[in-house]
Design a protein around this nucleic acid. Structure first.
Length: 262
DNA sequence: GTTGTTACCTGTACGC
DNA sequence: TGCGTACAGGTAACAA
């Protein structure tokens, strides 16, 4: 499931391949993944030149000479350059040099064209690797939900998902159910530093390939080999040997060590 | 405004 | 082998 490090990897691999190219044609075969009408979107995209590609949390913004093509990969979305189409190819962008496919088996992702960045993207919280400790601490103090749920809240920080929330809380030694506003400053600082460290290391490893994540060139990431708690239910904690526990927090599978995390 | 719940969707794993 | 079922989770919509 693509979270910040996976989306960042997609953006980095996509950038040299498509920036500067012109979109000749855009075709949508599964309308579920498209926000807006297919004909209107195709008409708006035809002839546009790609000027850049940016990431806003888990959203990908393809910056055009007029407007933005927004892509959210959902759970299983992929943007693939010059690959063969599959039964899950729902959109095809033909460029003046090459072709980009949007593939998505579960169809949780979305593609959208607009003149401006969508309001829901502008409403996102700060980037977790850019937010200051003071701002992060203030946002946590405002909320009583479990810290895990708060980390998943894209209005608090944008881009953290289930994998990195679990991994960050393990490294910080903080229980996922701890009420956000109950954390001491020292524990907030540990969560902040762990979150940034996990995200930086995952970006270096080109993301985590669980399920079927690959980057724009079809390559898998490597960070799944470094997960310490995520999807390790029942396996021994790498620090103390206690079996990793799995519970539900915010309706999400949540993995932690009951001894190392307080 | 926050908080919690549910729907969306299909490949995969598992039990029988 | 084949079938039924549970599970995975990011976002948005909704209720409270």
């Amino acid at each position: 499931m693509p979270e910040l490090p996976e989306v960042e990897t997609v953006v980095r691999t996509l950038r040299p391949l498509i920036v500067g190219r012109r979109i000749l044609n855009a075709e949508f075969t599964q309308l579920r993944i498209l926000r807006g009408g297919a004909q209107e979107t195709s008409a708006a995209l035809a002839g546009r030149r790609i000027q850049g590609i940016e990431r806003y949390g888990k959203f990908i913004a393809i910056v055009l000479d007029k407007g933005y093509l927004m892509v959210h990969l959902g759970m299983t979305g992929k943007l693939l350059v010059n690959s063969a189409a599959s039964k899950w190819t729902h959109a095809v962008f033909t460029l003046d040099d090459g072709v980009v496919h949007y593939d998505d088996p579960r169809q949780f992702g979305r593609v959208e064209y607009g003149d401006e960045l969508p309001a829901r993207v502008l409403a996102l919280g700060p980037e977790p690797l850019e937010v200051s400790l003071d701002d992060f601490a203030a946002a946590l103090k405002l909320r009583r939900s479990p810290i895990k749920a708060v980390l998943l809240n894209q209005a608090v920080v944008r881009g953290v998902g289930n994998i990195y929330a679990d991994e960050a809380l393990f490294r910080a030694g903080v229980l996922p159910k701890s009420p956000s506003d109950s954390l001491t400053r020292a524990r907030v600082k540990r969560v902040y530093e762990a979150m940034q460290a996990v995200l930086r290391e995952a970006i270096e490893s080109r993301g985590s390939s669980v399920a079927n994540y690959v980057d724009a060139e079809g390559r898998k990431g490597g960070f799944q080999l470094l997960h310490r708690v995520y999807q390790r239910t029942g396996e021994p904690c790498l620090k103390c040997g206690t079996p990793i526990t799995r519970i539900l927090v915010a309706q999400r599978g949540t993995h932690f060590c009951g001894k190392c995390q307080k």
